[in-house]
């Protein structure tokens, strides 16, 4: 499946915690400029996949090729500096620093920009994401939606090639979703390949080019989002078998 124009190429990834196999022989690729969705029931191993790619965990076996280079075993900060940025499902701000400082630090360290250049970029990104009126607030005082936006701002400010977005929609109100879809699409149009973990069907179908569904650490479907969510195995893992048979 992997072709020359894939930016991330993951082969036979495996990770277990004690006796529990979280990710089992998981292979996929992320195309250049693609938005790839990753769905699956709780505990399917989606976040573990992100943690493996971003270097938080080291896989038991498998290869993660980024721009043709195997990045398995690199520490998180190096992977970020290579151009793979991520957000966390539960926002992880620097609570005592201001919103602007939060973003500026990511630009300085993650993007290698100078202090002045980082500040300029941070202002631009905050404008784009809609947080500029809160830029001097301590990040610890932000509400959930703003914290999620801050996660995104911090991720994209370093000009990454790949963006891993972990459930940015979870916990948000229905009305807030179009704004989010628009932002993700714009980031993608700027040339960032995006991988998205998401549960909200509307957000997934409207945003992604391709959808992978995981269950119990394995890939069970991979294809066009509207086809994948009708796949019998996908419905089965979400809703159970009997309903499918009816």
């Amino acid at each position: 499946m992997a072709s020359d124009d894939s930016i991330l190429d993951v082969q036979r990834l495996k990770k277990s915690f004690g006796g529990l196999v979280a990710v089992r022989d998981f292979s996929f690729h992320l195309g250049k400029g693609e938005i790839l969705g990753l769905m699956g029931p709780n505990g399917a191993g989606k976040t573990t996949v992100f943690n493996l790619i971003s270097g938080v965990y080291k896989p038991d076996s498998g290869v993660i090729k980024y721009k043709g280079m195997n990045i398995v075993g690199l520490p998180p900060h190096k992977i970020r500096r290579l151009g793979i940025a991520r957000t966390y499902q539960i926002p992880q701000p620097f609570p005592r620093l201001t919103v602007l400082q939060n973003v500026q630090i990511a630009a300085m360290y993650g993007g290698g920009f100078s202090k002045a250049e980082s500040e300029k970029r941070a202002h631009e990104v905050l404008d784009f994401i809609g947080l500029s009126d809160k830029k001097d607030m301590p990040a610890g005082n932000l509400k959930l939606l703003d914290l999620k936006m801050l996660e995104l701002a911090r991720a994209i400010v370093s000009n990454p090639s790949v963006l891993l977005v972990d459930e940015v929609g979870a916990g948000l109100r229905e009305a807030e979703i179009p704004h989010l879809v628009k932002i993700l699409k714009t980031i993608n149009e700027m040339g960032v390949s995006i991988m998205l973990i998401e549960h909200i069907p509307r957000l997934v179908v409207e945003t992604v080019d391709r959808l992978i569904v995981m269950n119990a650490g394995e890939k069970i479907a991979d294809g066009k989002p509207r086809e994948v969510i009708r796949d019998a195995r996908v419905i089965e893992c979400y809703l159970g078998k009997e309903i499918v048979e009816e």
Binding site: H77, P93, I105, Y109
Partner: peptide, 22 residues
């Protein structure tokens, strides 16, 4: 830059690493 990195680490070590801080 070092000071900014240190304050980020003090505030949230995991996020600091994710932001590219060694």
């Amino acid at each position: 830059k070092l000071g900014a990195g240190l304050m980020a680490i003090r505030d949230n070590e995991r996020a600091a690493a994710t932001c590219g801080i060694d």
